[in-house]
Design a protein around this nucleic acid. Structure first.
Lengths: 333, 333
DNA sequence: GTCAATCTTTACAGCGCTATAATTTGCTCG
DNA sequence: CGAGCAAATTATAGCGCTGTAAAGATTGAC
């Protein structure tokens, strides 16, 4: 059983290839009887259009590259899902690419040695700076996600991190907490994400006239929850004095919950904890997490809109969009 | 700035297209000086091969479709990562597809109306039966993942579910538990996955001479952790009498932990809990989860090996491979 | 110095589809 | 009844690359 080509269908129906193509694409000007005749031939032969041929002819692949650190981090899995769902109506499929947070991988995304496969790219950088990205001058239409980096020439979608950090810290202060720490920033080489969240955290303390105390900043060695378990446990044993911990993300918060529980501290009675991202599991931990909830579907939709405009040829300066977030209050704070 | 084509490079170097192609592909018989000359032209023009053209010419896209229920379920996110990593050395990229566990979506995967885009497919069915899958006669080389369904004609890779369920239940029995329940199967229309895990659970009870008690089976309404929270809480309030709960997967276990904690029961002192999948977070919950750990990297590698053989033309009967698992003992049991 | 054998390079025909422009058919209307 | 216009259909030229087959260059053996 060999493959059926467009020409085979055309021969069978006794028409030209283009007419068959018109039927397949529901082109307006095809007479009903012709449409029926061609459809019959298609069905009889079991014809399935070959996407490779179509892609080459149109010059579009319908594929968008979605690149971020690691799909096994729940936030990114949920982001991937949202993007994938948002892309379907626009006729795009999503191809995932993990960077592993290495400079070389991120750079090779921007300076691809091959072309044609992707129509565009959504990229959440984690180690490259705006200047480095700008220097790469990617030739693929690209929209950046997140707060990490974005040259002026490129589009970017994110939430207002300092504001959200300030809000969630203020929430802790409003509930009477004063000795508030921060968990989950890098030990050295602070990322832009951590920087912005720390800034909002500090701002909230300032607003309340609380003197920020550097001894309440707990850096972690890795992005996963285990990094927070290790770091927080260690600092608790060293006599950390806090009544609340703002965590950089939900994974850090989950690790923090474990460290606190393990040490015999009760959440939120002894120490309140907040997360960030509102991953699905944050509603199911015990206690459930008060967290910053970015509007991921909107983020995905906006990013795709900007990207499709770029693909369509828009060539203006970078547009930087801020997407809404909210503070979801649960048991942990 | 228009796109550079192979012919442009050939013109610039004063050679034929094929020679340029040979240089790009490190073809054996190219003289060093020719290679240098062509490379120079490539660099000068900044030539990037267009994959669409290559794909059409070779008839291969290098794309493998990976389909399962939902990427936001941690097990699948980790599986996707493993497959993606295993695919790279073989020259394949992975395109994710979510089925949402609906029959129509699963069926449309098998009976695609388009062709050419994918070289093969890895598919973890969740609602289709073996017979339904067999009836579809997919024309794309396909390897099935998981225990749910697999016609005799198709390859499949999975772990030994009944054995693993039996082992983890026996572990509970060995630690003195007797009133052991099961959490997370469907309320109606038992899935093959649940069936096999329940079978192993029951077998272990039988082995120990314990009478299985249907009142200790707790079905859930959804696959996520919240489904388990609801179901377990409800049953606990209704007077459920257990000293251990075998959960269908880690998400159900995490939900179960919350329900138990919320009800004031201590894990593992009052009730031991086990999970399934060994997702990353299972090491960070409090208490951390004793769980069944499938060897996902091996699963991914074996599945891809079988798939590449199918793509290469292997046409034998379905091969059913069993991949190793182990019981990871942590705090919860 | 010649012939065969091997190494390099080339010419060109597709891969399967779409887009453009050209052509034919079907109507309306003066 | 034929001009004029719109609707329907076709012929054909690519899209950018690779594979095949064949030609040209080089080498070694005798």
């Amino acid at each position: 059983m060999k493959r059926v080509r467009l020409q085979d269908v055309a021969d069978r129906a006794g028409v030209s290839m283009k007419t068959v193509s018109n039927v397949i694409h529901d082109y307006l000007h095809v007479s009903p009887q012709m449409r029926a005749r061609v459809q019959e031939a298609i069905d009889e032969l079991g014809y399935k259009p070959n996407l490779l041929g179509r892609q080459l002819a149109t010059g579009r692949s319908g594929l968008i590259r979605l690149a971020f650190v690691d799909i096994s981090l729940p936030y990114f899995a949920e982001l991937a899902r949202a993007v994938s769902i948002a892309a379907r109506p626009a006729g795009y499929r999503i191809l995932l690419e993990e960077t592993g947070a290495t400079y070389d991988t991120e750079r090779s995304l921007l300076q691809d040695t091959e072309s044609g496969l992707f129509d565009g790219m959504l990229f959440q950088p984690s180690v490259m700076t705006s200047a480095q990205i700008a220097a790469c001058r990617p030739d693929l239409p690209t929209v950046l996600l997140g707060e990490a980096a974005a040259p002026l020439t490129m589009d970017r979608v994110m939430i207002d991190n300092p504001a959200a950090a300030r809000e969630i810290t203020s929430h802790l202060i409003a509930s009477g907490r004063r000795r508030i720490g921060f968990v989950g920033h890098e030990e050295s080489g602070l990322s832009e994400t951590s920087r912005q969240r720390l800034a909002g955290y500090q701002q909230a303390l300032d607003d309340a006239g609380i003197q920020p105390d550097p001894s309440r900043l707990i850096a972690t060695k890795s992005y996963d929850a285990m990094g927070a378990v290790t770091a927080v446990t260690q600092r608790l044993e060293a006599g950390l004095d806090v009544d609340a911990l703002v965590c950089r993300d939900d994974l850090a918060a989950i690790g923090t919950l474990r460290a606190l529980n393990h040490t015999g501290l009760s959440v939120p009675d002894d120490v309140a904890v907040t997360g960030w991202d509102d991953i699905k599991l944050s509603a199911v931990t015990f206690p459930s997490l008060t967290t910053v909830s970015p509007d991921v579907p909107v983020l995905a939709t906006r990013a795709l809109t900007l990207l499709t405009e770029r693909i369509a040829g828009y060539d203006g300066m970078g547009r930087h969009e801020v997407v809404p977030h909210q503070i979801v209050v649960r048991e942990s704070a």
